[in-house]
Nucleic acid binder design. Structure first.
Lengths: 230, 230
DNA sequence: TAGGTGTCGACTGTCGACAGTGAATTCGAA
DNA sequence: TTCGAATTCACTGTCGACAGTCGACACCTA
């Protein structure tokens, strides 16, 4: 039996992941104001760990604070997603190249397991989460700590956006699962080959294709807005 | 006269910039442990704002916290600088391209003023600060908020590293000032032309040439370590 | 003397409380 | 009724205090 050192999580960490879930699931709605005292009392803790959690969530882009310091659930616009897209395009191929060079067998097995889980996922939300986790694994396997850290500032926004889109336009996502699995299998194969340049290229393609999704969904969102709003 | 809304600074902000200065100037040494109670009493505030400042400083890479949550002044290694270099190479050309497309006359004037100030700077520390500020201005002028935010997580580490090098090997930096001015003038010219691709290319070259510095300084550091250590 | 055990001190994580600050609201006057 | 001023109200920023935890050091035992 291997006893690996266990990390004793803070209250702040727990609060953060609780809030993450609540935001990603849509329980807390974009734009909504979330006062610290309310969160603290609802979670049964004091404001101190809540404050810390909110700072971290701001770094992850899930909440924003206005001029007066009050925190709101982030409202992601298409412009935001364009920013995120351009940064993914800058960061992830870099990391993929490094991963191809440095990753261990263990890393590859974890990636393969993720793909298998994605194949058997039974809900879109699960696919989304596993998708983000897959990219997370690659960023980590790259050994580039700062890039992985930056990625943390993007991934939850990606998840939040996809969640939002799914809730609005379920029909659009029919083929998501099989396409994700296919793309990730291609990526894993290239990563395993150890060819850094090829890995960069494949990741670039993967993200570019993801952008098509973005435009399409934005389009659908715009159409539906026009239908419901005026 | 344009009166932009002024941000009323927190104690946490003040503490942060004080600590920034102390770290960049070398008053607080790399690796040194900095207990919250001590900082709080030395600055005459309570631990709350100090804690917040430390979280932000950690994001900026100036301090790190160990497994027990204790804060230390960051000790930058050559490996760290390689990471930072690769990220600059990913982020800054992207931003430079956007800046070429979007920047206002006002932005260009601020950049020109920065170059003028660099030309007249009387100390290396000042050149370093203005250099970082120049890149800061470009990141901001790009309008890419997330990229600018990420850059904040790098710039102070760059400053800290350069400061450290300067203190160790003053002689190496003879030509820094004139070279910086020249390079920045070239950059500004391309940015003003509005040619995004050219701006990307020029920024890439600028950063690649900065990497040569990195290697050279690392080399000098290694030599001097060998001389003093064993 | 070496290895293990108990104690002490230092620091972090967490808590409840208070003061200051805008925004919203109510009240009074025209 | 409408405008302006005063007042409440809901927050955030900040503070001091306490408890739990970990390493260092002394001590005990074989």
């Amino acid at each position: 039996m291997s006893l690996s050192p266990l990390s004793r999580p803070n209250l702040a960490h727990i609060v953060r992941s609780r809030l993450s879930e609540a935001i990603l699931s849509g329980e807390l709605e974009p734009g909504q104001h979330v006062p610290e005292p309310e969160l603290a009392s609802r979670l049964g803790v004091s404001r101190a760990p809540v404050r810390e959690a909110l700072i971290e969530l701001e770094r992850q882009g899930l909440v924003t604070s206005d001029s007066r310091g009050r925190t709101h659930i982030a409202r992601l616009t298409l412009e935001d997603m364009e920013e995120i897209y351009s940064l993914r395009l800058a960061l992830e191929p870099l990391a993929a190249g490094l991963t191809a060079e440095r990753a261990t067998t263990q890393d590859f097995e974890t990636l393969a397991a993720n793909i298998a889980a994605t194949e058997q996922a039974t809900s879109l939300a699960e696919v989304t989460r596993l998708d983000a986790a897959f990219h997370d694994l690659i960023m980590r396997a790259s050994g580039h700590r700062r890039a992985a850290h930056f990625w943390e500032g993007l991934r939850y926004q990606v998840e939040a956006w996809l969640g939002l889109m799914q809730r609005r336009h379920q029909a659009v996502f029919h083929s998501t699962q099989v396409e994700t699995v296919k793309a990730h299998k291609r990526l894993l194969k290239v990563l395993r080959s150890g060819d850094a340049a090829a890995a960069e290229e494949e990741m670039k393609k993967h993200i570019v294709s993801w952008r098509r999704w973005l435009a399409m969904e934005a389009d659908a969102a715009a159409r539906s807005d026009r239908k419901t709003a005026p």
